[in-house]
Amino acid sequence: MSLDTQIRASADAVPVQPRRKVSRRHRKDAIAALVFLSPQLVGLIVFMIGPLVFALYLAFSHWDGFGAATFAGLSNFTELFENPRIQRSAINTVWFTVLQVPGVMITAFLFALFMQKAGKMTNVYRLGFVAPVVTSSVAVATIWLYLFNPEISPINSALRSVGIPAPNWLQDPAFIIPSFAVVAIWQGLGYQLVMFMAGLQSIGASYLEAAELDGCSAWQKLWHVTVPLISPTILFLSITSIIGSFQVFDYIYVFMDSSAPDEARTIVYEIVQMAFREFNFGAASALAFLLFLVLLGVTGLQMAAQKRWVHYAE
């Protein structure tokens, strides 16, 4: 099957620049890049770099939020490694990500595909999917605390009526993280759905119908046309949702306040607890720094691997 290679071939047919213009062009390009980037660069420098450097500095300091910080060497890091709870939180965070990211991405992609075929009604259905995004966290917490309450939950009565033992969602250690993942998938679906639909929309029907005329099956169309063409969207969503998922924090706070059991804690929950409840900004920053390194590694791998599967039009 050669359709995707055809797409590449047609895109690769770029006119070649004469060589002597190259260096002049480079200089002009640098200036142009600076101009286009400048507003965001101002924002980056003023609002981001400072606080990030400060957090990095704190990772190697003792600081309780007041007064002067003192140099701590690596003691914040050794403190973290000696704390068995951090290990548990790291496992919980990874477990949450493993459940949530593929869960929401696959569901959103499938729904986006189906919605493509729903014609005018798409607008109505999509409103339903986006509703969780605009539902306030208070209402989210109230309704899910109710759905997770084994005494009164309709989910549990439904399960019991078909003979499945109903779990105690937020108390049973095995179910806490999956419960959070369910809420996160429910709330994140609308956003990813819209992103995927925007991506699919921009492919245009032409490519797919062209593939159809070439005699491709539905599966071949999906795998060889649709997926390559929206691969930039997939890359974007997978990188940003892994980063977001590794930083999950608010669900635990909303459902369990500041005394969540070990089985429910995630890394950023620990960071916030350490910083603002225990006044240990050094250890909190050290943990954030470790999280940063992990995310940088994961994202770096994704960026490096993209050449193999992400298809840009150029």
Partner: peptide
């Protein structure tokens, strides 16, 4: 019934 860790007073 022990309800676990919940927001205060809830």
């Amino acid at each position: 019934t022990y309800a676990g860790s919940l927001p205060k007073g809830q």
